[in-house]
């Protein structure tokens, strides 16, 4: 377990957190390499299916990050998303996914320090839980 490294899928809004990731990179900040980043156009684009698919294909953790309330590039995408996320997180944990596996954050494009610190927090929370035991489906020919 000591050298086990989690694989985490991060879905980042193009207009904020993705920019923060860029800024963290050009600022040469250090953060764990466990998160595979996927760019989405808005937190509001985040489909619950993306999270389920990531978990089903074996992700140890999932992290979704968008713009702070009031800062959405499309004005209110993150407000709608916030309600979807709340219900989603509650339901998936109700069904037995550990609370430390699914994370959400608001990170603006200027907050590279917050970006690095959230990556740290998410990674250590997932690492503490260890590999997933259930709910991973073998890949099929369609994949």
């Amino acid at each position: 377990m000591e050298d086990w490294e989690p694989r985490i899928v991060g879905f980042l809004c193009n207009w904020c957190t993705y920019g923060a990731a860029d800024l963290a990179g050009v600022s040469r900040m250090q953060y764990p390499p466990n998160v595979r980043l996927i760019r989405i156009p808005c937190a509001g684009r985040m489909s619950p299916k993306f999270i389920l698919a990531a978990f089903m294909k074996g992700a140890d953790g999932v992290w979704v990050s968008g713009c702070h309330p009031g800062d959405c590039h499309y004005l209110e995408g993150n407000y709608y998303a916030r309600r979807k996320f709340a219900l989603f997180k509650n339901l998936i944990e109700y069904m037995g996914i550990e609370p430390g596996r699914l994370h959400f954050s608001w990170i603006s494009s200027a907050e590279s320090t917050k970006f690095a610190s959230v990556v740290n927090k998410v990674t250590s929370a997932v690492k503490a839980l260890g590999p997933r035991k259930h709910g991973i489906k073998a890949f099929t020919v369609n994949d």
Binding site: G70, R82, R83, A86, L87, F104, K121
Partner: peptide, 30 residues
């Protein structure tokens, strides 16, 4: 509990995932 909503009681209110309040609960968000 989160949005004070019960489905199907009024024609004049939007369902909870089709609306929001700026101060919706978000203590689960970092």
């Amino acid at each position: 509990e989160l949005y004070g909503w019960e489905a199907g009681l009024s024609l004049d209110e939007r369902p909870p995932l089709d609306t929001y309040r700026p101060d919706d609960p978000e203590d689960f968000i970092k």
